[in-house]
């Protein structure tokens, strides 16, 4: 069953990759990359069980954290045009604490 799950992760990854290539806007691509990260996390965990080394779960934790932080970093780059404190341009009409996270 673990091998079947690994194959399903591969299929889901390929479908998300299709969306990442075709997506009309950058947000579609970002959503697809987020989904690819999720399937990679699941694939690492299942791959450890297929090989009989379940210690690979540690790498999955690392990937989960990197996926979350990376998505928010790219979102902040899209939203404010920079990764610094206030971004590239100041947006005073935003409620505070919305784009930082």
């Amino acid at each position: 069953m673990f091998a079947v799950g690994l194959a399903a992760c591969a299929v889901a990854l390929v479908l998300a990759l299709v969306r990442a290539m075709r997506g009309p806007t950058a947000f579609d691509r970002l959503l697809a990359v987020n989904a690819i990260g999720t399937t990679v996390i699941l694939g690492i965990a299942l791959h450890g069980y297929v090989l009989g080394r379940p210690e690979f779960v540690d790498i999955s934790i690392l990937y989960a954290i990197i996926n979350f932080i990376g998505t928010f970093a790219v979102l902040k780059l899209f939203d404010t045009g920079g990764l610094g404190d206030s971004g590239g341009r100041a947006k005073p009409d935003l409620p505070s604490g919305e784009d930082g996270q």
Binding site: V4, G5, C9, V11, A12, A16, A32, A35, T39
Partner: peptide, 15 residues
């Protein structure tokens, strides 16, 4: 795991 596979494939098809 089978239920998770179904949800995963359905979600990626919807994507």
């Amino acid at each position: 795991i089978a239920a998770g596979i179904v949800a995963l494939i359905t979600g990626s098809l919807g994507l």
